[in-house]
């Protein structure tokens, strides 16, 4: 399970930091260091399981909620964003629920590895 999480994290970093060797290298190192620091944990211990859940959450964030921006030539304060196919798109559906009495359940979907 940990190995799959590590793979997902590396893959997410590859997508999130495409073309940005400096940050991609740093992200890979951070991922490796994180997994190294948990190496001694028993695979089924609570801490190990929590760390894997955390790693999967980081992967999801990198993949869906991080967008690279590149300053546009000669245009101050303007950036071209690289939105890719995995970038999360909000549909604003939830705004229709505002003001309605019935509360909608919070999203507590668990991560799978």
């Amino acid at each position: 399970m940990a190995l799959a999480a590590y793979r997902h994290l590396l893959r997410a970093a590859r997508i999130a930091f495409e073309g940005d060797a400096y940050r991609l290298t740093a992200a890979r190192k951070a991922a490796r260091d994180g997994f190294e620091s948990s190496r001694a944990l028993k695979p089924d211990s609570e801490e190990a399981v929590n760390n894997i859940v955390h790693a999967e959450a980081v992967s999801k964030f990198l993949m869906e909620n991080l967008v690279q921006g590149k300053a546009m030539d000669g245009e101050a304060e303007r950036y071209k964003l690289r939105i890719h196919e995995r970038t999360e798109r909000g549909d604003n559906e939830s705004i229709k629920l505002a003001g309605k009495k019935k509360s909608h359940p919070t999203n507590t979907k668990a991560f799978r590895s």
Partner: peptide
């Protein structure tokens, strides 16, 4: 090790 192997496969 197992993490290295993941890196190789990647």
């Amino acid at each position: 090790d197992s993490l290295d192997t993941v890196e190789v496969v990647m």
